[in-house]
């Protein structure tokens, strides 16, 4: 862990937070009782978003106190750009699939969760891609 840059540690923290939060969230809301978002669903969604934001914010404050944040250099920008290129394909595909779901499935539950799932998936793939590039080279 000592050899990791601030950016790598930040990526690990975000990746762990996103995977854990959304795994628990999806285990709680699936399968849906009705085809639309009910009040408990909306509350849970807001609650888990709050938990995620709070965890990421606090962990990054602790990280910034423990380790000096260096400016992002050209290699890190390139790593980020390459990861963004891959994850944008996933997000775009997710939006298209969500539109198809909205047309075919009544209610808003599956539409919202399809978009949400692909947003999470693209974030996870983005982080993994960046972490891999930091270790293996770009």
């Amino acid at each position: 862990m000592h050899d990791l840059t601030f950016q790598e540690k930040s990526l690990w923290l975000t990746l762990i937070a996103v995977v854990l939060t959304y795994t628990v969230y999806y285990l709680n809301v699936m399968p849906p009782i009705e085809g639309r978002m009910l009040a408990p669903h909306i509350f849970q969604f807001a609650y888990y978003m709050g938990v995620l934001v709070a965890f990421v914010a606090i962990s990054h404050i602790v990280l910034a106190i423990k380790q000096k944040q260096e400016p992002v250099d050209e290699r890190e920008k390139l790593i980020r750009l390459k990861a963004d290129a891959v994850s944008s394909y996933i997000l775009n595909s997710g939006v298209f699939i969500a539109i198809v779901v909205a047309l075919l499935v009544p209610g808003n539950f599956w539409f919202i969760h399809t978009i949400n799932f692909f947003a999470v998936l693209s974030e996870v793939v983005n982080s993994i891609q960046q972490l891999r590039a930091y270790r293996k080279g770009c």
Partner: peptide, 21 residues
């Protein structure tokens, strides 16, 4: 003006630097 990890990556031929660097 880069990180130590970037110098390490350049040394190991894992990253070709820009002309400026």
């Amino acid at each position: 003006g880069v990180t130590r990890q970037t110098i390490n990556a350049i040394e190991q031929n894992k990253y070709p630097p820009s002309l400026e660097v």
